[in-house]
C-alpha cells in the first residue's frame, strides 16, 4: 500500500543523504521524496512516498526514527491528512487540437503559466492522483516535458 511519511529533521548537511541512503541500503522503495526548510530554520521537512506492506512500512518508520538527525516521523496515511503535488507540464499545442487540450486543462483544474506559439506550460496542483490523471488524459505524444515535485503533506489535526 502507498504511504506518505512526513519527517522533521535537523537542517544539517548530510541529513538528506542519511535518509536516502537508508532506503537504498535496506532495499526500501521510494516513490517520491521532497525536502525543504521550514519556518524553524533549524528544521527541514521531508515527505516521502513509499509502497510496502504494513510490516515494511513499520520498519521504515522505525528505521527513520532511529536516524540521529530525525526529530519526528509521522505516517500521514495513518491519520487524516492533506496531500498535494504540483506538476509543470510542457505540451506541444498545435492549433488543430488546442481546444481539446484546453478542455483537459479545465477539467483537471490546470493553469497555463506560460504559452508560446506552439507550446503551453501548464501547472497542475492537487493530490498525486489528479496530476497522474491529467498526464494520462493528454496524448503522450504531445507531452514535451514533465516535472513533478513529489508529494508533500500535513496532518489535519492541530497536533499529531
Amino acid at each position: 500500500m502507498r504511504h506518505i511519511i512526513s519527517l522533521q529533521l535537523e537542517n544539517e548537511s548530510g541529513a538528506l543523504s542519511r535518509v536516502a541512503g537508508l532506503f537504498s541500503a535496506r532495499g526500501f522503495n521510494i516513490e517520491s521524496l521532497t525536502v525543504a526548510p521550514t519556518n524553524d530554520e533549524t528544521l527541514s521537512r521531508m515527505t516521502i512516498v513509499s509502497i510496502g506492506d504494513d510490516g515494511i512500512i513499520e520498519q521504515i518508520v522505525k528505521q527513520l526514527d532511529k536516524l540521529i538527525d530525525v526529530v519526528t516521523v509521522t505516517n500521514l496515511t495513518a491519520t487524516e491528512h492533506i496531500e498535494r503535488e504540483l506538476a509543470l507540464v510542457k505540451i506541444d499545442v498545435n492549433p488543430n487540437f488546442r481546444a481539446e487540450i484546453d478542455k483537459h486543462i479545465d477539467e483537471h483544474g490546470g493553469k497555463i503559466v506560460d504559452a508560446s506559439e506552439d507550446t503551453y506550460t501548464v501547472e497542475v496542483v492537487g493530490k498525486s492522483q489528479r496530476v497522474s490523471d491529467f498526464l494520462e488524459a493528454i496524448d503522450a505524444l504531445k507531452i514535451l516535458e514533465v516535472s513533478r515535485t513529489g508529494v508533500t503533506g500535513v496532518c489535519q489535526k492541530r497536533e499529531y
Binding site: G55, E58, Q59, K62, Q63, D65, K66
Partner: peptide, 11 residues
C-alpha cells in the same frame, strides 16, 4: 532497547 529490532524478521 532498539524498537527497530522488534518485528524486523519475526513478528
Amino acid at each position: 532497547i532498539d524498537p527497530s529490532s522488534v518485528g524486523k524478521t519475526v513478528g
